[in-house]
Nucleic acid binder design. Structure first.
Lengths: 149, 149
DNA sequence: TTGAATTCTGATTAATTTACTTGGGATTCG
DNA sequence: CGAATCCCAAGTAAATTAATCAGAATTCAA
């Protein structure tokens, strides 16, 4: 039940973009360097993210990528589902497909897979990139914050 | 984020055992037939389940497997973690291992993986084999139940 | 207007994991 | 004894993952 590198790198890269939101396009090279990911691999991920409408690209020199929307309108769920496909522990609980079950007891286990699916999606859909930025700032301003107590 | 067949078959097979709990040993052959799984593959899964103490084996003719404990004391989480390893979306949130993070922002994403891990484990730990039996009986006694209304 | 910096596209590949299969050995009941 | 069963270790084919490779297309800036 691991996420693949697609989902993990994708969230990191999108968080990286979110930290620079409003400061113009960010190059994949710089993301790759900061996050320690191969540029070419990032290109593949960003092709998907762009097609899904989560980022916009600016081509040519001084180009790069920017978030399509503000960080508070993009969730971790949007990113992971774009890169990994539906977050379901079994095929029979992927909503947009109809996978038949011929076993009589299938529905009992199917109910379980459905609960797992729902709880995962609830968590990732409840976290926005803005939430991540806030967490990041809390960590990094902890010392400063102490002065005010 | 799919469960592998190990986890899925394992839950089905253990549920099969639970339905016959108290009726003596059940052979892998019969489980394999009912659940449509290869016997030899089931053998591998039951080797793990036995080592984890979830089932007991009775060798020789008329042998088979029984649950080590009553269905209400075995959770879906016990089964899945035994067969799939820790239910964590990323290595850095596996509790019993120490995986280092060198990126500064790692902790932000790590927090997310931790939330996903916790929500998955909460769900699977809250479902016992007895719960599954109850669900199963509800489904199958629906018609009978109607006569009493 | 040229060259460097970038995104974009499609193919290829190496490593890993998954989902078994194969081939036997050990044990126990009837 | 022999059939039924669990037990064990290795092998394997297919799929997936995680990239890499090669180069075309676009744009900015000097």
């Amino acid at each position: 039940m691991r996420l693949s590198t697609k989902g993990r790198y994708g969230v990191k890269a999108m968080f990286d973009l979110a930290l620079s939101y409003g400061e113009g396009p960010i190059t994949l090279n710089s993301i790759a360097e900061r996050q320690n990911i191969s540029v070419h691999y990032l290109e593949q991920l960003f092709a998907s993210l762009r097609k899904a409408g989560l980022v916009k690209s600016i081509r040519g020199a001084q180009g790069g990528y920017i978030l399509s929307e503000s960080p508070q309108n993009i969730t971790v769920g949007d990113i992971i589902r774009t890169l990994e496909g539906p977050l379901a522990p079994a095929e029979c609980v992927i909503d947009d497909e109809n996978h038949e079950c011929d076993n009589a007891d299938c529905c009992v286990t199917r109910g379980i897979w459905g609960k797992i699916r729902d709880s995962i999606n609830e968590v990732v859909d409840s976290i926005t990139l803005q939430n991540m930025i806030d967490d990041y700032n809390k960590m990094h301003n902890k010392d400063t914050y102490m002065y005010y107590i």
